[in-house]
């Protein structure tokens, strides 16, 4: 059992190490995310302050929205922006058939690599953002702009579970992007479609709770909610009991569905490659 997992663990470790090398990139990403967070917070603050009556009826208070913005900026690397860059290179150089016909379970292989890459990008950036928005800002007297801690300890635990599910979800989407890249011979199309979807439907552009009430159910059921909005709701403590179970069940169901779709289409892609030789 351990032996069977060895190549996948090795893939994970190698990818993690390469990603951790990019210290300068992570620092640059951190600064960019802080900047973004600050602009967004100033805009939200203007909306909330300008309309006192509406603020009372808004489903999130200003400080909750501010916390939401920081969590979204901190977990930006969780988004499935694009396919594995090495797959894109292999497709460009025409060596992709070689890569695919290895004696391993390709879905697991890709999924491990994607998880390691996302984690390697996520962990340093998230820690830096938490340190900045959660510690530096309150100490600098900007408590109103700060990231507030989770509502309670159980909420924090649920947030952690939900983020891990988001990681699995994101990796399974990256595998789908890999497959699209191999099929269309270009990484551009797939990410052009996924990027806007992930941006708006994960809550990154605007907390999903602020959308009109009529579309709330739809927004919460779609898969991208699990990449940001649902973890945020756990952190803010707005999901409890049956709704919490439902949210985690929603994430698990999408992971299962995307995994099955990914495995099936990967099988078909490989079958075609074996016949045509790429």
């Amino acid at each position: 059992m351990i032996h069977a997992a060895t190549p996948y663990l090795a893939a994970f470790r190698a990818r993690w190490q390469t990603t951790m090398r990019y210290r300068a990139a992570a620092l640059a990403g951190f600064v960019t995310q802080c900047w973004w967070g600050v602009i967004n917070i100033m805009i939200y603050a203007a909306f909330y302050h300008g309309a006192h009556d509406a603020a009372g009826t808004a489903p999130l208070g200003l400080h909750q929205t501010v916390t939401y913005v920081w969590i979204m900026q901190g977990t930006l690397a969780l988004m499935p922006w694009s396919c594995d860059p090495e797959i894109a290179d292999a497709v460009r150089s025409g060596a992709v058939a070689h890569d695919l016909l290895r004696p391993i379970d390709l879905w697991w292989w890709w999924s491990c690599r994607a998880t390691a890459r996302i984690l390697g990008r996520l962990v340093p950036r998230a820690l830096l953002i938490v340190a900045f928005a959660g510690l530096v800002l309150p100490l600098a007297g900007l408590g109103a702009w700060a990231l507030r801690p989770p509502a309670s300890l159980p909420d924090a635990a649920l947030f952690a579970v939900s983020i891990l599910m988001g990681l699995a979800l994101s990796a399974s989407i990256v595998v789908l992007l890999n497959i699209v890249t191999v099929r269309t011979l270009s990484p551009a199309g797939g990410s052009a479609v996924i990027t806007p979807l992930a941006l708006i439907l994960s809550g990154n552009l605007l907390p999903l709770a602020l959308f009109p009430g009529a579309v709330q159910t739809l927004l919460i059921l779609q898969p991208f909610a699990g990449l940001g909005d649902l973890p945020c709701r756990f952190w803010l403590g707005t999901l409890h009991g049956g709704r919490a179970v439902l949210a985690l069940g929603q994430q698990a169901a999408w992971i299962a569905a995307l995994t099955m779709i990914g495995r099936a289409s990967l099988r078909r892609t490989l079958h075609r490659l074996e016949i045509q030789g790429g």
Partner: peptide
Amino acid sequence: PVGPAGLAAW
């Protein structure tokens, strides 16, 4: 070299 955990890069 960055070591097994990759932390040395930091």
